[in-house]
Every structure is written in structure tokens, then in C-alpha cells.
Design a protein around this nucleic acid. Structure first.
Lengths: 225, 225
DNA sequence: CCAAAAGTGTTCCGTCTACACCCATGG
DNA sequence: CCATGGGTGTAGACGGAACACTTTTGG
């Protein structure tokens, strides 16, 4: 390989995943205890170094797969972090990715395998390096996007009740929503379809199950809650 | 220095600046002909490698200063680009920054010094590597933010007329705005202050000059056009 | 005196907000 | 039979969109 740029310095490049889940009422983040020095044992986002054989995006997907066993999940870059001393070991530039997953799809055995834990967003401990800032930035991004993109469905099973959906919005926006106004609004969004199925788990009366129609959304990508 | 992470690979890390200006009617981007191999002579965003003595943000500010002679300008990260082959020379991960500057502050002599040119956004030529994508992503970011952040003033002189301000919004949003509705809206935004000064350059009658009150905005950071 | 840009209000319509009660059922 | 969560409608406020003419003055 020809050597360009050789008067310049190279750095480690890593990816860190902010994986959000939803327990029915609160947003949760998947974090673990760091397993290497420096910072061994500290709470931390899960991440890894970018390998020569993969793009940065691919590295993020690989890390997400390691953490969750899931592929093709919603995942968006949420920022690049490049302070000189952000990593106490060596200089590492890290690209953060924000993922939304449905906890029901999540294989609980991964938790022990990688020493991961779901922690409610409001109860996040202090994390390694600048990871708390990454989480804060990712939440800010979510709040901005959730009003104009159909993000919420990524946190729910394929079939969900309107109450569940409302709880997702309330958790991300951090404020209560009027039930009647919310349901009125949902009726106008035709990519959210009522199904014939009924959920009897959470109420005696039973609640209608809805579905997000991804195909219809692909045809007309407008969405506004 | 202790050596952590040594089983991993390092990469070049660069920053690229998407510098937007405003000519009174259109958005313009500051681009130049690349002065090194690979890609020597191709149109390109201006960028540089991150030095060991600076953070990634600082590198971006340094590059912006090189390009414009200006410091403390509006500048926001707009994405990290990490495809394996994005740079034809070697593997380089690049972090893009979007800057807004007032062309009036701009020292024209920089243009020749660095071989830069203001090019209207709609007339951008094909650029080096993935730089066209960077510009597109930056414009998308601007469109999202301009409705809720006071960005537009960065493209204008300290004193500006409402017609100029309207043209900025029209250029970024890519659609015409009704003059009366626009001015009615501006009247409600009290961080935009009318001054006693009058601009006689663009009209015989003269137009009132306005100012963005940064201090007032810092006290209450709500802004919605 | 006229061309060119500045400046100004009203009406209508759709959207958001606030708000309280009945329904169905499992235990 | 009652506790629990599901489901529904209306009225008023507010904000956005459409729309045309008068003013000023330099040349």
C-alpha cells in the first residue's frame, strides 16, 4: 500500500453503544462493568475498537450484536467524542451510537455472559470516561427525533396497546400526555393500525393491540405525533 | 506512557469543515481544490488531520480559522464518517463540522491564500471522497435546527434588515415565506430587537435594522420561528 | 413621476388543550 | 360487586396560512 499522510498521527477509534430499552414505564440503558484496564470494574457503556475489516457503522452493529444478539435494530450515530484525555489509557476517539431495542426480544442470557445490566435512565451511576455525556446527548437526540420519526415502535413488541405506546412517549419526553388527545392523534396516523388481537394481560377488560405498518411508512415517510 | 489496547489498530482521524455563507439570496459553501495526493486538484471540503496536541473539536476550530481567519463562530459536529474505503489513500475516519459565518466578516484574501471559493449550494460540483454526503447531511441538520435555534443570525452582519433575515430562512428551508406572516412572527420574538439604525443601501425608502440580543437569549433559551 | 423595496391587518381554518365519565371483566 | 385499566367527545383557545395595498424616496 502506498503511504500517504505519513507525517500525521494515528489514533485508536472505538464505538460505544447506548442501548435503550423500555420496561413498560421507564427508559432503561444497557450498561456493564468494564472488563479491562484502565477503569476495570467501572460502570460503562459497552463498546469496542474499530477493526480494519469493518466500517465504523459496522463496528457499532457488531458491538450491538455482541450485547443483544440482535441485528438490524434501529441505530443512529449520536456523536463523535474526541477530547484529548477522554480515555485515561491512551488517546481514543470514540463514535457513539444510540440503539432502541425491544426488551422482549432480548435474550436474558446475554446479561450474564457480558455482565450487562438494564438500568433505569434516571438511576444511571457514574460511568467510565465521558459515557454519561454520551447518554445525555443520545437522550437529547431521541427527544428531538421522536416527534417526527416513528422511533417508539422499536422499543415495543410488534403488537402493542395504545397505553404501552403512550408510556413510551411519556418516558422519552419526560412528561405526561392526555390519554384522549393521544388516542385521537393516533387515529389520524394511518401507519398505526388496529389489529383484531386483544391483550388480556394488563387489564381485565382487554386492550386492542396495534401494529406499526412499516411498508406503508416506507411509501410515505411522513410522521408527526 | 503505559500501553493499553496495543492489540488494536490505529487510524488517521481528520476533521472536515462545511462552511456555509449567505450572499443575500443563496446559501454558499466554501470549498477548494485539494492540494495533496491522493485526489490532488479535486474539489473538496477543507479539512486536516487531528494533531496529538488538540481535541477533535479544537482541530475543527483550527481548520475553520485557517479557512476564514475567524474564531468563535457557530460550529456543530454534523457526523462521523468511517467507511473503510472512504479515503482513496489510507484509512481515515473523519468527523464533519458545520459552520455558519457572516461573509462580510470574511477576509477575501484567504480565498486566494488557500485556493478557496464560495460556491452556491445548488451548484456544488462533485467533491472528493464522501464530501458531497457530508454537505447533504449538514444541510439536513441545519433545516432541522433552524426552527428551534437562532442559527440564522450567524450568517448575517450584527445589524440586518428583516428582508435579509427572511431570505436566510428561505434559503435554508428552500421555500418562500409570506412577508407579512414572517414579520408578524418576528415581532413576537423579543430577542430580535429593532434598532434606531436604517439601512439605505438596498432600498430608496430605507429599511429598519434589527439585532439579535444574545444576552437575552442566554437568559431564556427558547426560540421558535 | 415612477420604479423598487418597506411596511402593515384581518379573516379563516385547522390543530392543540383541557377536561370526566362509562365500559368490560376477572377475581 | 368492585377494583382495574380501556375506551370515548366536545368546546374554547391558539397559532398558522392566505391574501393586497400604501408608503417612501432616489434617480
Amino acid at each position: 500500500m502506498t503511504e500517504f499522510y505519513k507525517e500525521h498521527t494515528k489514533y485508536f477509534v472505538s464505538v460505544d453503544c447506548i442501548v435503550f430499552g423500555f420496561d413498560g414505564f421507564k427508559l432503561e440503558v444497557l450498561i456493564g462493568k468494564r472488563k479491562m484496564d484502565p477503569g476495570n470494574g467501572q460502570w460503562s457503556l459497552h463498546g469496542d475498537f474499530v477493526e480494519p475489516t469493518e466500517s465504523v457503522d459496522e463496528a457499532a452493529n457488531r458491538v450491538l450484536f455482541q450485547m443483544t444478539g440482535l441485528k438490524d435494530q434501529y441505530m443512529k450515530q449520536s456523536g463523535a467524542y474526541g477530547a484529548i484525555d477522554r480515555d485515561p489509557g491512551e488517546r481514543v476517539v470514540s463514535v457513539a451510537y444510540c440503539a432502541l431495542i425491544n426488551v422482549k426480544d432480548y435474550d436474558e442470557s446475554m446479561l450474564t455472559k457480558y455482565g450487562l445490566e438494564w438500568v433505569p435512565l434516571e438511576k444511571l451511576p457514574q460511568l467510565y470516561s465521558d459515557h454519561n455525556i454520551m447518554v445525555k446527548d443520545a437522550v437529547k437526540m431521541l427527544r428531538n427525533r421522536i416527534k417526527t420519526e416513528p422511533l417508539s415502535f422499536n422499543l415495543l413488541p410488534e403488537l402493542f396497546t395504545l397505553t404501552q405506546l403512550q408510556h413510551v412517549y411519556e418516558a422519552i419526553l419526560g412528561q405526561e400526555i392526555d390519554k384522549r388527545n393521544f388516542r385521537k392523534r393516533i387515529k389520524q396516523i394511518d401507519v398505526i393500525e388496529k389489529t383484531e388481537h386483544i391483550d388480556k394481560l394488563t387489564s381485565k377488560r382487554g386492550a386492542a393491540l396495534y401494529r406499526f405498518n412499516q411498508d406503508a411508512y416506507n411509501n410515505d415517510q411522513t410522521f408527526r405525533l
